[in-house]
């Protein structure tokens, strides 16, 4: 990868990371079975999935860009789907509730006034505990989470590969691997917090009205990633 392409790849990867947070269902009050979504903050959850992706992408660094991106995406998606399965088991047998989307039940989700799950077609409304905002991760949020994890994992792996190709000529191999790993982790963590500002701590994924705010995140992440990419490019290539 040419240095200037690598810089553009860092920017693109940062933006992908920013977008992925909008797709992964997350809500901190989920830990009390009081909201739909995985029971932790959006930025933390995306960070966890992204780290799993970067760790897995590192194994295949010698096999070319396409494989690196695919491994990052698949490992992130594996992490998210296992977390959703674990969370649903905890909800089903620990708390005794079945997964239900709060926003769909109240008829305010993206596809319209229907209270049915978009993919499975199951009615959500009767299954919600009154006074809560849904619980667990129904099928539609699971699909959305998988899409988000694939986007985020691709973004993280892209940044890893780009930084590695910037550092490869100037550092020895082991150092280049680890330093590009920590820098891509850093870029992931920076970009996963900006969407959390937009989401105000809770999202149900791509069927949530908050998806309409994605352009704000996109522009913010674009600007921030550009500044970081220029500084990294400056440090690695210019001076």
């Amino acid at each position: 990868m040419e240095p200037i392409t690598a810089m553009l790849a860092i920017i693109l990867g940062g933006v992908l990371v920013g977008i992925c947070v909008h797709f992964i269902p997350a809500s901190a009050t989920g830990a009390m079975s009081a909201a739909t979504g995985i029971a932790t903050g959006p930025s933390m959850l995306s960070a966890g999935a992204g780290m799993a992706g970067i760790l897995s992408a590192a194994y295949s660094m010698d096999s070319g860009l396409a494989v690196v991106l695919a491994s990052g995406a698949s490992a992130s998606a594996l992490m998210i789907s296992l977390t959703i399965l674990g969370g649903n088991i905890a909800n089903a047998f620990g708390t005794g509730v079945s997964p239900a989307s709060g926003q769909t039940a109240s008829g305010q989700s993206m596809p319209g006034k229907s209270t049915k799950d978009v993919i499975s077609g199951w009615d959500q409304k009767p299954y919600i505990t009154p006074g809560t905002d849904g619980h667990g991760m129904p099928v539609q949020t699971h699909i959305s989470g998988l899409i988000g994890a694939v986007i985020g994992g691709t973004g993280g792996a892209l940044v890893l590969f780009a930084v590695y190709s910037l550092l490869f000529p100037i550092l020895e191999q082991d150092a280049a691997f680890t330093i590009s790993g920590i820098i891509s982790a850093g870029i992931f963590l920076i970009n996963s917090v900006l969407p959390a500002y937009t989401l105000v701590g809770k999202t149900e994924g791509m069927f949530d009205q908050k998806l309409r705010r994605t352009p704000k995140t996109l522009v913010s992440c674009l600007i921030v990633s550009t500044v970081i990419a220029i500084l990294i490019y400056g440090a690695a290539v210019v001076i």
Binding site: A39, T40, A47, L55, A58, L82, G87, D174, A185
Partner: peptide
């Protein structure tokens, strides 16, 4: 894994924290 061991530990720590707070904490 080509990363150095502390970096692997860092990433695994973030991941296990996420999974722990998302599943067991319920």
């Amino acid at each position: 894994n080509p990363f150095s061991v502390p970096l692997i530990a860092f990433m695994l720590g973030i991941t296990i924290g996420t999974i722990g707070s998302a599943t067991g904490d319920i």
